[in-house]
Design a protein around this nucleic acid. Structure first.
Length: 445
RNA sequence: GGAGAGGUGGCUGAGUGGCUUAAAGCGACGGUUUGCUAAAUCGUUGUACGGGUAACACUGUACCGGGGGUUCGAAUCCCCCCCUCUCCGCCA
């Protein structure tokens, strides 16, 4: 959500954002509803003021203990006269109440529509964000590392993992349906090793590790911008009005919602490893092979809450991207960074970069990380604020990025590190997390 | 899951229908006093949305966990929900 005042003052910029982000937000309707909302408020406020005034008077007339009453009696006014006067005012008050009631009913309807429209207004993207319709218009920023050139016919991760007995998709599907899997033995160890490495890196970079709920109240989904619109993508537990998160970003970002932080607490840098649940509705038939697009996975996520300062937000954006790069570089996996275009970035984002890691079986880079900067979009929805040195409260700015998501990252690991005999060399950086294991499969001796 | 007790400003805590624009204290901020620290003393002290202004000032409304209701008038009475605590039961 962005500031209605900002919207009214920057109609052109918002209109452009709606167009460039392929948003269906009806800006004209929003402005019309807001106009009506303000009119109603003004009228109702005036009536309420009048009503309060009358009630105060009636109070004096009806309360024999009041100073006014006692003075009136002392002056010779009879209790009957006072009561009659009070009844008259009371009748007048009642008629005003009737009109207030009507206005309030309309206010409720209008405010509801206003809220719904406000939730659909996109954040204005940064000036350097490329304008485009879809993922095809994303712009590559830089690359690191060289994709491996194989002198034998490389296998894909499913062939490798199944033959090694570390990946069992069939039984995963038997248990839980399509897009499910089992990781076994060294596969499971590899999965945990990657997460441990990522946690160690992010902690070393100054982030507080936090264990968070992954089944959260729906309002956290609204607060972080996943709802409305993303309900189909999430597993909702309707009878509890809660949802399984698709990322720990939700819990980490909403953690301080409805609070006013001391500026000295900022920036808040937190990270969590959590299981992530995604229904992948609408993705039927897409990436059905292997463990690329699956219903559950584990992810180390990093979140920064900082002051409402554009430059500071940009600084932290670079920082959280660098954090993810450190992990990939430790794993010696080639990757590239994309500046995500307006049409592909999501309504709440100011700026977004994806990191794609080289996946031999796709003969291309595949998305493994996503780094977003939201400005105050999420903070406004979450009512997440801080008190600044200027004594005023401001909405925080929020950012987040993947540190590592597994098992998707196992795709490039298995495929890049495979050997001609079908074994897989364990990346150096992971060996300490796997009891020194150097190779999965064929004998090392 | 059962029974009970609660939820008031940054914090503690009064307030059971109208002299409450939420007492008092603490904290914070500002002034005075002071060789420094401490103490004393005086004052200020929330949020949101409107109106107003160049910006202040000023001003209206709402807010005592959330939402409804009763009433001319609700922190206070009624209903529903959420949360916390205590005891019991169950349990990794």
């Amino acid at each position: 959500m962005i500031d209605i005042k900002f919207i009214r003052d920057n109609l052109d910029a918002v209109r452009a954002a709606i167009h460039n982000k392929n948003s269906t937000c009806d800006l004209d309707r929003l402005i019309a509803v807001d106009d009506r909302r303000r009119k109603i408020q003004q009228e109702a406020d005036a009536l309420r003021a009048k009503s309060n005034e009358l009630s105060a008077q009636v109070g004096l007339f009806k309360n024999p203990k009041s100073k006014w009453y006692q003075e009136a009696v002392a002056k010779g006014t009879s209790p009957d006269q006072i009561r009659a006067e009070g009844d008259k005012l009371q009748a007048e008050s009642a008629s005003i109440k009737q009109r207030i009631k009507e206005l309030e009913d309309e206010e409720k309807v209008v405010a509801g529509e206003f809220q719904n429209l406000m939730l659909t207004v996109p954040q204005v993207p940064s000036a350097r964000t490329p304008i485009g319709r879809s993922a095809e218009d994303n712009v590559e920023v830089r690359r690191w590392g060289e994709p491996r050139k194989f002198d034998f016919k490389p296998k894909d991760h499913v062939e490798l993992g199944t033959a090694l007995g570390i990946l069992d998709i069939e039984r995963g599907v038997k248990l839980a349906g399509t897009r499910n899997y089992l990781l076994r033995g060294a596969g499971s160890l590899l999965h945990h090793a990657v997460l441990r490495l990522a946690m160690d890196v992010i902690i070393e970079r100054g982030f507080e590790p936090i264990t968070v709920p992954i089944l959260v109240r729906d309002e956290m989904m609204y607060g972080t911008g996943y709802y409305p619109g993303g309900e189909e993508q999430a597993y909702r537990c309707e009878r509890d009005a809660k949802s399984l998160v698709g990322t720990a970003e939700v819990s980490l970002t909403a953690m301080y919602g409805d609070e006013i932080l001391d500026e000295a607490m900022l920036p808040v840098k937190v990270a969590a490893v959590s299981t992530c649940f995604r229904r992948e509705a609408g993705a039927a038939g897409k990436d059905t092979y292997g463990i690329y697009r699956i219903h559950f996975f584990d992810k180390v996520e990093q979140v920064v809450l900082c002051r409402a300062d554009e430059a500071e937000g940009e600084k932290f954006h670079h920082e959280i991207i660098a954090n993810a790069e450190i992990v990939l570089q430790k794993l010696e996996l080639p990757y590239r960074i994309l500046s995500v275009c307006t049409g592909d970035m999501g309504q709440g984002k100011v700026e977004m970069y994806d990191i794609e890691t080289w996946m031999p079986s796709r003969n291309s880079y595949g998305e493994t990380h996503s780094a977003s900067r939201f400005g105050e979009f999420q903070a406004r929805r979450l009512n997440l604020r801080y008190k600044g040195a200027d004594k005023k409260t401001h909405f925080c700015h929020t950012l987040n990025n993947t540190v590592i998501a597994s098992p998707r990252i196992l795709i490039p690991i298995l495929e890049q590190y495979q050997n001609p005999d079908g074994s897989v060399t364990v990346p150096n950086a992971l060996r300490t997390y796997m009891n020194g294991l150097e190779q999965i499969g064929a004998r090392t001796a």
